[in-house]
Amino acid sequence: MKQLKELYDYREMIFSLVKKDLRGRYKGSVLGFLWTFINPLLQLMVFTLVFSIIMRAGYEQYYLFLFVALVPWMFFASSVQDGSTSILREKDMVKKIYFPREVLPIATVTSGFVNMLLTFIVIFVVLIFSGRGINPLAVLCLPVVMIVQYILCLGIALIVASLTVYLRDLQYILGILVMALQYMTPVMYGSDMVPDWALPIFRMNPLTPVIEIYRQILYYKQIPHLTSLLLAFCTGVVFIVIGELLFRKLQKGFAENF
């Protein structure tokens, strides 16, 4: 409780770190912040080109099928990878001054989250213009799944951020792991393509329900099942509790391990 209050007191620091990160991302480029929108749009154009002309997949409007899952996936991937170095990157500050160290992974994950929200503007525009349309009732569930994913990502970021301080190799190991996990999560395919015998293992992946819910809402225009939302939420809570406990224990040695 005390920690939560302290983090609340440091909200301005989180905001300013997020702002710095978002503004710094495309710094020096002519189009600047516009890239936040141009980048996913161009990506989407490539997908459309490749998947509707060259490599035709079994799903209609496959580029949309892929894109609505890929954007949340990229948020997860950046949370893990940028999150793992979030403490190391700011080691000068950690060595010199006190602030609740959780601020750093929180800011990293939040900035990835905001970036995803901005990309969603592109998603909605494309959904409407491609003729697929949206189901307003289903979209109401979108904030819930976003928050659930945020909690899950933050939990994992807390774990990897604190461990990476002690074992630097982790940041590179995570690069491979995240890539492997992408193929084990229904991002490029649907879970209907998974053979029955592999389903139990497939279901153990905490990202699977989250990604499926995104797709259900945006691609299939369905209201997600409460049970799958609840399951995803519980997974997120477990991760954030473990993450915080581990982080709190390991953070005491941060300044001495750079």
Binding site: E6, D9, Y10, R11, E12, M13, S16, I97, F99
Partner: peptide, 15 residues
Amino acid sequence: IYTNASIFGLTKKEI
């Protein structure tokens, strides 16, 4: 000033 003061745990209003 805003960045640095926020590291001391000050909110925007306080700054």
